[in-house]
């Protein structure tokens, strides 16, 4: 059976590899992918959004609708993990996880390192989030680093300490709140008479030009993305590391 699968897959692979002959060469500047849409993005993005980082401009503005759902996917993952793992254990089926005690007086080195690294890491995360317009970065990256700082805290201290700082309910609220901020900005534009996610509508409120309004709109939605991703990282860590019972982490 396994051998049959292998043979079939190898045959498919061979067909697809040989069919690669009419795909454009690697890094060919004249390929359709590089010559159809991408010049337009590079040439128009700065003028329209005042964002030198074209990836950010495309991500949060031209394809902002995609990115909104991307944030929703992240939120959805946290929601599903919580809804599956945190359910009251099934009487007959689920075994209770074995419980290992926290080690006392053992984590001096990790705690010391965490004290030094975590605040710096959080500022770095906010820097990455805030400078997505000028350097590689943005909501996802900043959110991941920020969330990772909480995970580091949970690793170096313990899960209970982290949960006491950042409670599960607040985490869940942040998960929804970030995505809500994103969709809310979009809906605000809609209420201002523009299309959904047309950040240029914010020009009236902020008192800036339309291009600057798009730039600020991008920052706003990036903050929303960052909040969601951060909270989702923490939430997933809480659930997965403790098997859903919140008693102990790694």
């Amino acid at each position: 059976m396994k051998r049959l699968t292998l043979i079939i897959l190898a045959a498919c692979a061979l067909i697809m590899l040989l069919a690669a002959s009419d795909l454009p060469d690697w890094a060919d500047p004249a390929s359709p992918a590089s010559s159809h849409l991408s010049p337009g993005f590079v040439e128009q993005a700065y003028e329209a959004t005042h964002t030198p980082n074209v990836v950010t401009a495309v991500l949060a503005d031209y394809r902002g609708y995609d990115t909104m759902f991307e944030t929703v996917v992240v939120f959805l993952a946290a929601l599903i993990i919580m809804i599956i793992l945190r359910r009251t254990p099934h009487r007959r089926f689920c075994k209770i996880l074995p419980h290992r005690p926290q080690r006392q007086g053992r984590d001096t080195v990790l705690k010391g390192a965490a004290q030094l690294i975590i605040p710096v890491m959080q500022v770095f995360a906010l820097y990455v989030l805030g400078h997505g317009h000028y350097s590689p970065g943005g909501g996802f990256q900043g959110g991941v680093i920020f969330g990772a700082s909480f995970i580091l805290l949970a690793l170096c201290y313990n899960l209970e300490f982290t949960i006491n700082r950042f409670r599960e309910r607040i985490v869940l609220l942040c998960c929804a709140g970030g995505a809500l901020l994103y969709a809310g900005v979009g809906a605000l534009c809609l209420a201002m008479g523009w299309n959904f996610l047309g950040y240029a509508a914010l020009a009236g409120i902020l008192g800036v030009s339309e291009a600057m309004a798009r730039s600020h709109g991008i920052l706003l939605v990036e903050v929303g993305v960052g909040i969601t991703v951060m909270a989702v990282m923490v939430s997933i860590y809480y659930d997965l590391a403790s098997g859903g019972d919140m008693r102990e982490g790694l």
Partner: peptide
């Protein structure tokens, strides 16, 4: 950002 972090990590 600094204010947020120094509030979040005040005891670190």
């Amino acid at each position: 950002a600094s204010a947020l972090v120094s509030w979040l990590s005040r005891d670190l």
